[in-house]
Design a protein around this nucleic acid. Structure first.
Lengths: 330, 330
DNA sequence: CTGAAAGCGCTTACAG
DNA sequence: CTGAAAGCGCTTACAG
């Protein structure tokens, strides 16, 4: 490991003080133009790299942020979280921040607490928000900046999200207007805010048409494959004409089941999904979905968090656009 | 943010020196039993938490390791990397280490270089190794400990891996012995070491039976969906009786294509995969695969890296077991 | 067994 | 415009 030069070495070599060198680098404080240029030049030539750790100690900063990942494997394996994290890292890197991966859930905040106690981060990104969220409480108690990806009940939390409610309303609307009135809906864990928001959008559309969703056709908290399959079968028996799936995973399983039962889509039954991903993208026939830019979601979250950390003004809520993509399955 | 107490506060409150407090906490250096207990007790009661950053500065350590993630979305979205990372984080946390996510590839090591220059990590885990690997070179040049997940050409690199070659040999062997001699093989990027190792295992099995793989039926470097589908079609036309897929993604696409073409598995054609994942696990009929414990892979990698960082002896190579899981598709 | 002091590499009032 | 000095919170020879 090659020994790196420090600010003292630079100061000594140039016959100036450490203070001056520090100022030349940070750009803060008054400093003569010529002096600065001389220092910057020397630094470039001699490959000086500041020690971020020492800088952090002096400033009580770490230049690290944490991204909270769900800690059950069924969830953290979802492309969503990975893609999000990629966006977060990309933006963080530009400001010389790094991203710690921290796995936590409502029942298990011990990793989060450890990292918080160790003062290893300047801010936190919550990648999933649930209705009663002990993760949020933990971060809040610590008092460091954080932003939530997704909706939150607590309106005081800074957050970025896709506009799921409007998106689902719009897609549902299009389905209703195309003459499909008895829409079935299969959704996952209803303690996730996103499930609730999507359901609101679904309901919004019905109301706008002066109707109500048929409660016999709405299934929430459907968590495992078997349940999805039996509900699919049930819906087919009932003669449902269109199944709306809350997410890509559910949709993939529904499509698989229908295919296995030799029920053709869209001829016998139509299918749409409130969320897209690579699980569905290569499907034939192509699936009607909502499209969200997840990398951008991660990027926006990081941008907002960095502003928060640097005490710059930020919006309480950032809503990202979506695209309704009507394809062959409806 | 509640101000935390420091080692000085503890020292002052107890009328001892900072040195003594530090020793009581670290357990290093001689210290009176009674003094130590008094300090530990005070610390517990007053909720003292050491500042890991300061500790790191003094020791020239960061208590962070980096996990290198592939930087193209088709790859980092694979459950493999997520699951691996989970295992890494779990083990790291036990030793008070945290894990930075760093996206890099052979063409783009700038994030890695930045983090290395910033001295923000004590070691690196490489999650994928390619044949000519500029990532490995970059880390090596820096001189900090690292371990590779997967095989490497360079035998001097510390690495942990599943025994892909033996695993593939064994699965291929079983297929050959069950009377399927003209096995077709579809594999991905051949610059990935794992692709090469799997192919070796495949070949090993043939040799052991005094045969050779039929080069007309072997397709490597098959990277996109269209190619997989057309090869599948071609193989069906040729009357191939069994398609072996190098990984879960390829296998999923092959199965999808066959299903769409109404070709039944395993009646018309048999299918096996050299890698399992949730992509395949709920498939009907169940798929013959190799099963690997990926969380364990991440854990082992982290364990080895921590040993390396702490200058403890380690094995050059750690090979993890596998399971051949013969199911309905063959 | 314990402590004073120097040091890790930076930043930042304060003084000039 | 520039610098001496103190400080961030710890660790670790060195001395006693």
């Amino acid at each position: 490991m090659d020994k790196r030069i420090t600010i003292s070495d630079v100061a000594e070599a140039l016959g100036v003080s450490k203070t001056t060198v520090s100022r030349a680098i940070s750009g803060k404080g008054r400093i003569g133009k010529e002096t600065r240029e001389r220092i910057l030049e020397y630094i470039a030539e001699n490959d000086y790299k500041p020690n971020v750790i020492a800088k952090g100690l002096a400033q009580s900063k770490t230049y690290n942020i944490a991204m909270i990942m769900p800690d059950d494997c069924k969830t953290y394996e979802l492309p969503f979280f990975q893609t999000c994290m990629y966006g977060v890292c990309e933006v963080a890197a530009k400001s010389d921040y790094d991203v710690l991966a921290v796995y936590a859930s409502g029942n298990n905040t011990k990793n989060l607490e450890r990292i918080l106690e160790n003062n290893k981060i300047d801010g936190v990104i919550l990648s999933r928000t649930t209705v009663d969220d002990s993760i949020t409480q933990t971060v809040k108690k610590k008092g460091i900046p954080f932003v939530a990806i997704g909706s939150t009940e607590d309106e005081a939390i800074v957050r970025v999200d896709h506009d799921h409610r409007s998106a689902c309303r719009e897609l549902t609307m299009k389905l209703l207007k195309s003459g499909l009135s008895h829409l079935a809906l299969i959704g996952g864990n209803n303690t996730h805010m996103v499930t609730q928001r999507r359901f609101q959008g679904f309901t919004d559309a019905f109301k706008e048409c002066g109707m109500e969703p048929d409660s016999e056709l709405v299934f929430l908290n459907v968590e495992d494959t078997d349940a999805i399959e039996s509900i699919t079968t049930e819906l087919v028996k009932k003669g449902t004409r269109c199944i709306v799936c809350m997410d890509d995973m559910i949709c993939a399983r529904v499509l698989q089941k229908l295919q296995r039962e030799q029920i053709s889509v869209p001829e016998d039954i139509k299918v749409a999904s409130f969320y897209n991903s690579n699980l569905l993208e290569s499907h034939v026939p192509s699936v009607t979905t909502l499209e969200f830019d997840v990398i951008q979601l991660g990027k926006s979250a990081a941008e907002v968090l960095l502003k928060l950390i640097e005490n710059q003004p930020t919006k309480e809520i950032t809503l990202l656009p979506y695209k309704v993509s009507i394809k062959e399955t409806t």
